Computed example of a mutant assay.
Amino acid sequence: MTILVVGASGATGSQLVEQLLIQKHKVKVIVRSPVKLPEAWNTNDNLQIISASLLELSDHEMSVIVSDCKAVASCLGHNMTFKGIYRQPRQLVTDATRRLCNAIKSKNLQNPIKFVLMNTTGNRNRDLNESISFAQKCVIGLLRLLLPPHVDNEKAADYLRTQIGQNNNSIEWVAVRPDGLINEDEVTNYEIHKSPTRSAIFNAGKVSRINVGHFMASLINDDNLWTTWKGQMPVIYSKLWVDKA
């Protein structure tokens, strides 16, 4: 299976790529600068590195890139610098999600493509009417005013929920919501829930980036797991932090 990963140079995106390569998939990545990529990627026959700025690709170029892909995964995020947070592109994740989905739909494929979006527990799944405390609502309201990346994450997931929906002939989707991300060297036990089991603001859990990459790769690789979560926004916690709840 050929899979496109965007945001592959990031800390979580690179873990996803590694997990897909372990599963012997063919992987394409779109990165602005290949310099930061692991050296081993340059000699891996199952990995194609496309050096480009994603949003600067033409519609035709993007359509060609996704033409042979059975799945697309986005681990895009904003750099946590002043420029990354407040300057353009302020809707990086949303615009990339929309353009990738449009590229997929343009192919008029017989079978739907899997689209996996990395999102955040700070974003509610409005299909489930998830309840949060008044205090958390206030904090989220401030985040919407002060941090454009939070709004970007919300809009990207909302695009999948409302524009792609549950019965699209070309695209099936899952938006994975990790809690606080940490670095670990190995995959450990983790748990998946339909909704957060703890406050993302006042009692956040943790999940390793490698666990997130493993779960996203498993969604793509395992059709039964995909059937369980498609059209949903599952929350992932490393088991250690579930036990501490």
Rank of each mutant, 00 (worst) to 15 (best):
R124W: 03
Q136Y: 06
E56Q: 02
A245M: 10
P149K: 04
T227F: 01
N224T: 03
K105H: 09
L92I: 14
L92Y: 12
R99N: 04
N119Y: 04
I210T: 00
A245Y: 09
G77A: 14
H25M: 00
A11V: 15
K28P: 11
Q91L: 11
P234G: 00
Q23T: 14
R32G: 11
A245T: 03
E61Q: 02
E172V: 15
D152S: 03
T162I: 13
H60Q: 07
G231V: 02
H150W: 03
P149R: 01
N169D: 06
G180R: 10
H150K: 01
L142C: 14
N189Q: 11
A200K: 02
L55I: 00
S106E: 08
F134V: 10
S218C: 10
P148K: 05
S33D: 15
I113R: 03
L145C: 13
G231S: 02
G165P: 02
N79Y: 07
V176L: 06
P89K: 01
G213Q: 15
A73Y: 03
L146Y: 04
R209G: 09
G122I: 00
C69D: 05
P34L: 04
D222Y: 07
I236M: 07
N129P: 01
F134Q: 02
W41N: 12
K155Q: 05
E184G: 15
D158H: 01
H78D: 11
C69Q: 03
K194S: 13
P34R: 05
V139N: 00
K114E: 02
M62K: 03
D95S: 08
S131L: 09
S131Y: 03
S208R: 15
G205N: 13
R161G: 13
N79M: 14
G122A: 04
G7P: 05
G180P: 07
S67T: 02
M216A: 14
R209Y: 14
H214S: 11
S14T: 15
L128K: 12
D222G: 10
N108L: 09
K36C: 15
L57P: 00
K206E: 09
T94V: 04
E56K: 04
L100Q: 05
I49W: 00
N189Y: 06
E39A: 13
L20M: 08
N211R: 10
D223R: 07
L109G: 07
I182Y: 10
I182Q: 11
Y86M: 05
I236E: 00
P149Y: 02
L142M: 10
A71S: 02
P148E: 06
I210Q: 06
E61T: 00
L4Y: 08
D59G: 08
E186T: 13
I85T: 06
D95H: 06
A71T: 01
E184R: 13
E172R: 08
G7Q: 12
F202L: 09
N119G: 07
L92W: 11
T12L: 15
P148R: 10
W173C: 10
P112K: 03
S170Y: 07
C101S: 13
N203M: 11
F202R: 08
E39P: 03
G77K: 05
P112L: 00
G13D: 07
V242H: 08
E61R: 00
A175T: 13
I171N: 13
S195F: 12
F202S: 11
N44H: 09
R126K: 06
D127R: 08
Q232N: 15
N123V: 12
T228D: 01
T120K: 01
P38N: 08
M62G: 11
